[in-house]
Simulated scan of single mutants.
Amino acid sequence: MAQSDEEEGISATCHCGAVTLRLSRAPAEVTHCNCSLCRRYGTLWAYYTKAEVTILSAQPTDTYAWNGRHIDFHRCAHCGCVTHWYPRAESRDRLGINARLLEPAVLDRARVKQADSGGTGLFH
């Protein structure tokens, strides 16, 4: 499936292809967060409901939980790309997809929102 094939959704893949995230639609907006973790990961986050994302993985992902352990950050166990974060509580329906795994043409159409979660004052 081509990553811009709107009929079947959009795909985001890690570098080696072991993890594929199938999205129901391209993101209209992505978030550039500058918190201590996201700035190190270098991610842009696209947010979806659980029903809008299918996660396909040839192997288990490695996870890391931070700041109260409410969400798990996932990365490909083979190539190391951060792929997504997933909430631990079943009652939470939102998850984040690393939009940098999308094809550039798909990502270029999204508006970038800046979130000053690091409290740096860089984003106004």
Score class of each variant (00 low, 15 high):
16 C>G: 09
119 G>W: 11
6 E>Y: 02
61 T>A: 08
49 T>N: 09
13 T>V: 10
80 G>K: 06
105 A>D: 15
27 P>F: 11
15 H>D: 01
94 R>S: 12
6 E>R: 06
68 G>N: 03
115 A>C: 12
76 C>F: 02
16 C>F: 00
60 P>H: 06
51 A>Q: 14
122 L>R: 13
76 C>K: 02
106 V>S: 03
124 H>F: 08
30 V>E: 01
59 Q>V: 08
55 I>Q: 03
35 C>R: 08
41 Y>G: 14
43 T>G: 10
73 F>G: 01
74 H>W: 02
102 L>M: 03
84 H>E: 05
16 C>Q: 02
61 T>R: 07
123 F>S: 03
82 V>H: 12
26 A>M: 04
65 A>S: 12
115 A>L: 14
8 E>S: 10
78 H>W: 00
118 G>F: 03
43 T>L: 12
94 R>T: 15
35 C>E: 09
22 R>M: 11
94 R>E: 15
17 G>I: 11
101 L>P: 13
3 Q>N: 11
106 V>H: 06
95 L>D: 15
34 N>W: 10
75 R>C: 12
50 K>R: 15
37 L>R: 06
118 G>H: 09
91 S>G: 13
65 A>K: 00
100 R>D: 15
118 G>N: 05
50 K>L: 11
84 H>K: 05
33 C>H: 05
66 W>G: 04
115 A>K: 13
107 L>A: 03
74 H>R: 04
77 A>L: 01
121 G>H: 01
115 A>N: 13
118 G>C: 05
61 T>V: 06
81 C>L: 10
84 H>C: 07
13 T>C: 10
20 T>N: 09
111 R>Q: 14
122 L>M: 03
30 V>R: 01
56 L>C: 07
63 T>V: 13
116 D>H: 10
6 E>K: 05
81 C>W: 03
66 W>Q: 02
70 H>Y: 06
109 R>S: 14
95 L>C: 11
45 W>Q: 06
2 A>C: 04
82 V>P: 04
62 D>Q: 15
38 C>Y: 12
72 D>E: 07
3 Q>S: 12
103 E>S: 13
7 E>P: 00
104 P>Y: 08
99 A>Y: 05
6 E>G: 00
3 Q>K: 06
58 A>Q: 13
32 H>F: 08
17 G>E: 10
61 T>F: 00
45 W>I: 09
37 L>G: 02
100 R>V: 15
61 T>H: 01
74 H>F: 07
99 A>L: 06
1 M>R: 03
79 C>P: 02
15 H>F: 10
119 G>M: 11
115 A>Q: 13
5 D>F: 00
11 S>H: 09
96 G>F: 09
14 C>E: 06
120 T>D: 02
40 R>G: 14
6 E>C: 00
22 R>N: 14
81 C>S: 13
119 G>A: 07
69 R>H: 03
84 H>D: 04
10 I>F: 01
49 T>P: 01
